[in-house]
Design a protein around this nucleic acid. Structure first.
Length: 874
RNA sequence: GCGGACGUGGCGAAACUGGUAGACGCAAGAGACUUAAAAUCUUUCGGAGCAAUCCGUGCGGGUUCGAGCCCCGCCGUCCGCACCA
């Protein structure tokens, strides 16, 4: 019986329409079933979806569909991270408005995502550039301002003098603006900051509770927050300045205090600025330090340099000991206190510095097994733990004990009216600067009044809307030069005042969208009842590139929103999964600057004598096959999801990105791999549709005995295994098991189609086929519906509960045990699963192959690992 | 420099808590069907050997009845952070 090939172009839109009309994926907040919130990181509407999106959303959709079948009330929403620079760049290049550009892209990408057949609740969709969304974000900002979680301070920024804007660090390439190519300047600007450091300790500690996060991500966040335990130590000034009585340094090694030979301060330290006023030389050096700050690469090789300020300080543990204070180029103003003490014997950088400026080097720590009489420090500092030497009352103590001893003394000792030292925990994490001198972002809802100062926009006056009539023909922030927008009456005194023209970093937008999805219709940022019901997100899925910033900011926002009463939980994402990239071979011709990248669509690959070679379609010219890299427009190694869906269908694309590679690893996109996935789709359809007429005649009944037992066992075992794989997001393994099942069912199904199977067998196959359909449904949902309906089943697979496997069919009664002799496999033993150890030993010894291998030797020992292996030791 | 992960066939990968290494897919070879091609089906597929068998999970050691997995020491690749006191 000939059956037509499965035609996804016909079937896929049809099922998408059916799901849509039945509102299968629209989620209600008051559904009594247990909730499950699955979320993929929402996309930036750059223009078209790429394969990374296909992978990300396929992964999430399997989870969503699977959990729905398991009886959960699943929330699976989608939105758009829609503010940001590319829209403004496009505006400058193409004279389009950022708003038009963005919403057009959203429309395109929405229809692309819909063609994938994702089980999304589109009724909750929003874009962060929707007035309704940024209105609520401004509301949040004002609440945070009132709680003291937002503040303004002067801060150094990367300033592009040509584009007249602040650049993020990532946008500065070798000291130049990435767009303008202009040398970037360091400018002091007043910027808005979120007080993320208030939560540093909590953000760090709570990482331990995130047991469903990748260890890697937790570690990266831990390092980023960078907690260190140390001391603030005050050094009395004895000469060189009248403006300060002491210098405070931060140190994690107070134990090495007797190895100190100098103090070093940052170029922006108040004492350095004072010294610079008195000395041209120092002023020049400080300027040099500031300039060097921009080029990150240069830091690696930069020489450690300094200049004596003339200031002298007294050692905190020896009043007769005076030390010099240097300005040094390696001291950072924004970590610790901007001042350190140098212990050359215990720190390589301090040692290099001391050698250069001829400062004393006194070893104070030696390895525990060292000899105090001979231990010296030459070209290499010893920064490990050990035993104290040359340190007076500390001699002989461990570094740890010395730390405690010094800490105890300095906290007890006073300088002026305050303790000389205090224990201090320091963090690497800085407050989050959110000011951007850009148009296409959420306006910061604040008014500057000459009389009243900074006045938050009253909530009743929100939203502060972006004006539409702006121009992009000159650089700089269009909000700044808008004729009227920035002029506003002060809400407090009514006098003429000025709007804040900075907009918020787009990372703010993505720091709370997951909460907004729980009640996007709400007139407040959240409906706390809905947010508390749905959150935390049970499974969050996205790229590893967001391991620090986005995930850390979201964790901060969750805490800030709790303090402002918008929700009540600590951690936003219970489970996190970081997927790998989609990578592809690269093709090029020419070398160096003349190299030209070729798109896969423009060439054909041939295999000639085992060598893969690539030729241009147009000219037959042979071109070079290069390395496998992340799909990127610049290297043209991209495959457009639209093309794949048009030629193979969404199911094939989905199945392929889930196959082969574990989802946290990169997957290599290859034409032959896609064809393999497509073969599976066609084969499954053919096997089921050809047998459908016969299968329809019987009910689905698994076989407990007879010829069809193997079929039923295979189906139920696969069901159990795939269920486990889905729970662990091991989709590549699930795919492999499904292939196995289809391979097993192929011949029996052909027999059914040919009318050569009895009723019991046919019924067992119907049961097996229904299981197969249900386990492929999360991955290839259209194919599943099509097969389900060809069997004459009523209703949708999408509405059907996950099947239960039959335990009797899953357990194996007879098992095959490998029999080893001295650890080498010599035979196989088939025996009852519950056979006693004795019975297994005897049966193993009775095997001919074993007797031959033993060759008359007597076993010394027989190891029987139940249901695993037998090892006979001679 | 610091921190982390990973090294398994021609390729992507499986392998439970230390228990038959290479499931499944791709590529490749052989064959069937076909006027031919596509599609489909059958079959082979880590290396050596006619075979029995031997060797084989980056390299060198160790623990164990038994190691891809555990321990020690190397080599390589990738990722993150990087003047953090």
């Amino acid at each position: 019986m000939a059956t037509e090939r499965y035609n996804p172009r016909d079937a896929e839109p049809r099922w998408q329409k059916t799901w849509d009309e039945a509102q299968v994926f629209t989620t209600k907040n008051d559904d009594p079933r247990e909730k499950y919130y699955v979320l993929e990181m929402f996309p930036y509407p750059s223009g078209r979806i790429h394969m990374g999106h296909v992978r990300n959303y396929s992964l999430g959709d399997v989870v969503a569909r699977y959990k729905r079948a398991r009886g959960y009330n699943v929330l699976h929403p989608m939105g758009w991270d829609a503010f940001g620079m590319p829209a403004e760049n496009a505006a400058m290049q193409n004279k389009t408005h950022p708003k038009a550009w963005t919403y057009e892209n959203i429309a395109t990408m929405r229809s692309q995502l819909k063609s994938m057949g994702l089980s999304l609740d589109w009724s909750r969709e929003f874009a962060t550039c929707d007035v309704d969304y940024y209105h609520r974000q401004q509301h949040l900002f004002i609440d945070m301002l009132e709680k003291g979680l937002v503040y303004r301070k002067q801060s150094k920024v990367n300033w592009d003098p040509v584009d007249q804007t602040v650049l993020a660090n990532e946008q500065v390439i070798e000291g130049r603006g990435w767009r303008s190519g202009a040398l970037v300047e360091q400018r002091e600007l007043t910027q808005w900051f979120f007080k993320i450091t208030d939560f540093a300790e909590d953000l760090l500690e709570a990482l331990d509770t995130l047991d469903q996060w990748p260890e890697k991500v937790r570690l990266m966040q831990k390092n980023w927050i960078g907690r260190s335990e140390g001391m603030l130590v005050r050094w009395e000034v004895v000469a060189g300045t009248a403006n300060a009585s002491d210098v405070t340094v931060y140190t994690t090694r107070p134990d090495t205090l007797f190895g100190a030979s100098f103090l070093a301060i940052a170029a922006d330290h108040p004492l350095a600025k004072e010294a610079a006023e008195k000395s041209v030389e120092i002023a020049e050096f400080c300027d040099e330090c500031r300039r060097a700050g921009t080029s990150l690469a240069a830091l690696e090789t930069a020489e450690k340099k300094g200049i004596d300020t003339g200031i002298r300080v007294r050692h905190p543990l020896d009043p007769s000991w005076e030390l010099p204070v240097y300005v040094a180029n390696f001291v950072l103003m924004d970590y610790g206190t901007g001042a350190i003490f140098g212990c050359p014997s215990g720190d390589q950088r301090d040692l290099d510095f001391a050698r250069k400026y001829d400062l004393p080097v006194v070893p104070v720590v030696m390895p525990a097994d060292g000899d105090a009489a001979t231990f010296t420090v030459g070209d290499e500092a010893y920064d490990g733990d050990g035993v104290m030497i040359n340190s007076r009352f500390l001699d002989g103590l461990t570094t740890e004990a010395a730390f405690q001893e010094v800490a105890n003394r300095l906290t007890a000792q006073t300088l002026g009216n305050a303790p000389q030292g205090e224990r201090k925990v320091n963090f690497r994490l800085r407050d989050w600067g959110i000011s951007r001198q850009r148009y296409w972002g959420c306006p910061i809802p604040v008014i500057h009044c000459e009389v009243c100062g900074i006045v938050p926009v009253p909530k009743k006056d929100l939203p502060v809307k972006l004006p539409d009539d702006v121009t992009f023909d000159v650089p700089g922030n269009p909000l700044d030069r808008h004729a009227t927008w920035r002029h506003v009456a002060c809400p407090q005194c009514g006098k003429d005042a000025r709007r804040e023209t900075d907009t918020m970093d787009t990372f703010v937008d993505s720091s709370w969208y997951f909460a907004r999805f729980t009640a996007p219709w709400e007139n407040n940022p959240t409906d706390p009842k809905a947010a508390n019901h749905w959150l935390p997100v049970d499974q969050y899925i996205g790229g590893i590139e967001h391991a620090i910033l986005h995930l850390l900011y979201s964790r901060f926002f969750t805490r800030a929103m709790r303090e402002t009463g918008h929700l009540d939980l600590k951690e936003p994402f219970k489970g996190l999964f970081t997927q790998g990239m989609v990578v592809h071979e690269t093709y090029s011709k020419g070398e160096g600057t003349a190299r030209e990248w070729i798109a896969p669509a423009d060439l054909r690959i041939e295999e000639v004598e085992g060598q893969r070679r690539a030729f241009l379609l147009a000219s037959n010219e042979e071109i070079k096959i290069g390395s496998i890299e992340k799909m990127s427009k610049s290297k043209k190694n991209v495959v457009d999801p639209d093309d794949i869906i048009a030629s193979y269908g969404a199911d094939t694309a989905r199945f392929f990105v889930l196959s082969d590679s574990p989802p946290d690893r990169d997957v290599i996109w290859s034409e032959s791999g896609v064809e393999g996935a497509h073969r599976f789709v066609q084969r499954t359809w053919r096997l089921i549709s050809e047998a459908a007429e016969r299968l329809k005649e019987v009910g689905a009944t698994p076989a407990k005995e007879g010829d069809a037992l193997a079929v039923s066992q295979a189906a139920h075992r696969t069901l159990k295994a795939v269920q486990g794989d889905f729970d662990k997001l091991a989709f590549n393994k699930a795919v492999a098991r499904i292939y196995e099942l289809v391979n097993t069912l192929a011949a029996p199904l052909q027999a059914v189609a040919a009318g050569k199977a009895d009723t019991a067998t046919t019924a067992a196959l119907r049961n097996a086929v229904e299981i197969l359909i249900q386990i492929i449904a999360p991955m290839t949902p259209h194919l599943a519906e099509e097969c389900w309906s060809v069997l004459g089943n009523k209703g949708l697979v999408a509405h059907t509960d996950w099947p239960a496997f039959d335990e009797d069919l899953v357990v194996e009664n007879d098992i095959v045990l490998p029999v080893q002799i001295n650890g080498k496999k010599r035979a196989e033993l088939t025996i009852a699963r519950d056979a006693s150890q004795d019975a297994v030993s005897q049966a193993a010894l009775g095997l001919d192959a074993v007797q031959t291998a033993l060759d008359g030797r007597t076993p010394k020992k027989i190891i029987v690992v139940p249901q695993r292996i037998v090892n006979i030791v001679v």
